[in-house]
Simulated assay, not measured.
Amino acid sequence: MARTGRPRAFDKDQALERALLLFWSRGYGATSVQDLVDALALERGSLYGAFGDKRQFYLAAVQLYWDTYERRLLTALETGPVLPALREVLTHPARAHEYASDVGVPQGCMIGNTTAELVPEDDEAREVVARSHARFIEIVADALRRAQAGGEVTRAATPEAQAQLLLFTAQGYSLVARAGLDPTAALAAVDALIDALRA
């Protein structure tokens, strides 16, 4: 009779969520395998067996981060006026304290953090980031196209160009937020961009 192996005594999805928070708060390089073992209360063998090495574990966490972000982005933009929703999307990094956990406080956008730490040397990380950026532009451009048709947003530029500008702003805002920023000045800058998009 073939051995089927010992079943995992942990919830893989829950472990990935906890790892996401740890990587998000500390970054890839500053998070050791021992940090993951301690935070997840797992044996190293269980961790490697479930997720592979630290890099693969990190990339899985980044993908989970993006999947969650994409769902929230779609929900935010599918109903009601687009510009207030976009303002909320852009100022999201300033509310990182809302995601505080016992493993630390996430900082900024994890896609932006991955870009700064791993891209361009890591091909797989670059692909994850590129896919995330492309989806952001696609989702936001679709919303802006509807908003242009409804007279909410200016037609001075294409929805794709406007979405690209919003991506640059979101990523820049996120990185500046990590370094500490004046919330009043940051919100004023976002409001200036949103006002520039009004019809």
Rank of each mutant, 00 (worst) to 15 (best):
T114W: 10
P81T: 02
L118H: 08
L118Q: 07
A125T: 01
L118G: 08
G80V: 01
Q107C: 06
P81K: 03
R126P: 01
E98V: 14
V140E: 10
H133R: 09
T114F: 03
A130R: 14
E124P: 02
A96I: 09
G104N: 09
E88Y: 12
I111G: 03
D123Y: 00
A143L: 05
V103N: 04
V89D: 09
T79G: 09
H92M: 14
A94I: 11
T68E: 06
S101R: 05
T68M: 05
G80I: 00
D142S: 14
Q107S: 09
C109I: 08
H92I: 02
L74Q: 14
R72W: 09
F136Q: 13
R95F: 15
R131T: 02
R95S: 14
P84F: 05
G104Y: 11
H97R: 13
G80K: 04
M110Y: 10
T75S: 14
H133S: 05
V103S: 05
V128S: 07
Y99Q: 07
T75Q: 11
D102H: 14
E70M: 04
C109T: 06
G104R: 09
G80F: 11
P120W: 06
T68I: 01
E117Q: 08
T79E: 15
F136A: 10
V82R: 01
L118V: 08
A125S: 03
C109D: 15
V89S: 08
H92G: 13
A76S: 11
P120S: 10
L73W: 02
L83Y: 05
G108K: 06
E127N: 08
S101G: 14
P106K: 04
C109P: 08
R72E: 13
A85W: 03
V128E: 12
A76L: 05
E117M: 05
A85R: 04
M110F: 14
R95L: 15
A76E: 08
V129C: 13
V103Y: 03
E127G: 07
G108M: 07
E78Y: 03
V105Y: 07
H92K: 12
A116I: 06
E70P: 04
M110L: 15
G112R: 09
N113K: 12
P81C: 01
L74E: 15
V105C: 08
M110I: 08
